[in-house]
Every structure is written in C-alpha cells, then in structure tokens.
C-alpha cells in the first residue's frame, strides 16, 4: 500500500494523456478525478464512436476501455483501433469474470484487463506497467531537486553527494513531495497514501515522520518541507535555491 511511483515526469511540460471510454457516469467521473489528481491528463468519452474519434484526434498515451458501451462493445472498439495500426496500450474494464471474456479482450488487441470492481491503486499500478512496457512513460528513475537526488530503482537518496539513510516510509514521503512540488498534502491524505486506507492510527504519526525526514535532510527555515498550519505539508524546491 505504501509503494508510490509516479511515472509522470514533474519536469516535463506534457502530461501523460489517458483516454477513458466509459459510459457509466460515476465511474467515468472518479477515474477522471483520480487520474488527474495523480498527474495524468484525462479525456472522457461516453460512447464508442466518440471514443474512437477522440483516440484519433488526441493520440493519447493509454486508453482505458469499458466493454459494455451503449453503441458498440469494447471488443469491437479495440479491434478497430488495432486495425488502424495504433500501438496505444489499451486497458480493458469489464464486469464479467469469465475467462472467455478475458481471452476475447486480449485477442481483440487489449494489453491488459481489469474486472470490476477493481482497486484504484491496482489500476494505477497497471497503468504504470503498461506505460513502461510501451516506452511511452518518461524514464524517471532519478528525481533531482536542488542538491537532493532520489533514485526510485535503487531506493537511494543523496544530498549534496552524501548518502542519506531513510526508512521506507521516509523515502516514500520524500518521493511523493518531490513528484508533486507545491501541492499541499493534508495529514489524512498522507496517512492514507503511505499507511493504507484502513490504518487505524492518529495523524500525528505523519508529523513524527515529517520531522524525522526534515532532520535527515538538514532542512532548516526557510524549509523545503513547509507546514501549512491546520492543513498539512507541501514541498517548495525553488525557495531553497
């Protein structure tokens, strides 16, 4: 639950674009909100025809495709996209668990498959995997901010060339801050993302970890990790310059 990994480059001007083809309003809405929050650019199409048009026009990096659409089914959409020769990774969503559906989906040209109801975190993991495989994600194993270098693969952190020893939670916390500079995270959000949705503890554990991280980074005012009183924390790389 605590694993964080954003393949969205914070430095790049173009966000990774995801096209969601889904007719159920509520599902489309949460996918849009959630994916946007995670840093993706999202377009929603409510039927197959709009979806196919949108795929042609905007050339997204990934397509999330529901099988049950009002005008055509997802398999047909998938086949049409592949016939056009696009190599855009396609992730299919379906409410059916049958193997035959899975096989048909993959045969139609889908790259992966998720059964409703799915966990959003799993969806994110699959999106990351698909993007990595297709080579569409910007390779970001190393994040650099000021003199801090964070390697997501080796899980090493250097400050001014000196290696820091961080606990896994501290590492994840720093990674999250570095990927989303200037975004204010409430304590609840940090708790949910790093400790899991069902963690029963109080939010002051977040304060403890932030304080440890600050100490290890030698973070003195004006701080990199700033406290927004009554709200939470945010990361400000520029002020450190």
């Amino acid at each position: 639950m605590t694993r964080e990994g954003f393949d969205v480059s914070c430095g790049s001007s173009r966000k990774t674009q995801i096209l969601v083809i889904e007719d159920e309003d509520t599902i489309a809405e949460f996918l849009k909100t959630g994916l946007k929050y995670e840093g993706y650019g999202v377009t929603v199409a409510k039927d197959a025809v709009t979806g196919l048009d949108s795929a042609r026009e905007s050339n997204p990096d990934l397509i999330i495709l529901d099988i049950m659409l009002p005008d055509k089914d997802g398999f047909e959409v998938c086949r049409r996209l592949r016939r056009r020769g696009t190599s855009i990774p396609i992730l299919m969503l379906t409410a059916k668990k049958e193997i035959s559906d899975k096989v048909e989906g993959l045969d139609a040209g889908a790259d992966d498959y998720l059964t409703k109801p799915f966990s959003f975190e799993e969806l994110l993991a699959r999106i990351r995997a698909l993007l990595r495989r297709s080579g569409r994600a910007v390779k970001t194993t190393e994040l650099r901010v000021v003199d801090i270098v964070l390697n997501t693969e080796t899980r090493e952190v250097f400050k001014g060339g000196k290696r820091l020893t961080l606990t896994p939670r501290e590492f994840s916390l720093l990674e999250l801050f570095m990927r989303h500079p200037r975004r204010v995270f409430t304590r609840e959000t940090l708790l949910n993302r790093l400790w899991g949705y069902d963690y029963p503890g109080e939010t002051n554990i977040v304060d403890v970890h932030v304080s440890h991280l600050r100490n290890k980074l030698g973070d003195k005012p004006p701080r990199l990790i700033r406290t927004h009183y009554g709200v939470g924390y945010a990361f400000y790389p520029e002020e450190g310059d």
């Binding site: 929050y37 049950m68 109801p117 959003f120 975190e121 409430t186 959000t189």
Partner: peptide, 26 residues
C-alpha cells in the same frame, strides 16, 4: 445481477479510493 451490482460497487469503491488518496482535499 452480478453485473448490475458490480457497476455501482466499482463506482463507489473507486470514488472512495480517489477521495482517500487526496481528492478529499479539493
């Protein structure tokens, strides 16, 4: 019936997850 039940469940579960992951701050 399973399909009919899964669709709202997916929507509710996904929405909650998105909220917990930070959308609650907006």
């Amino acid at each position: 019936a399973a399909h009919e039940l899964r669709t709202p469940l997916t929507a509710i579960r996904g929405s909650l997850e998105v909220l917990l992951r930070g959308a609650q701050d907006d």
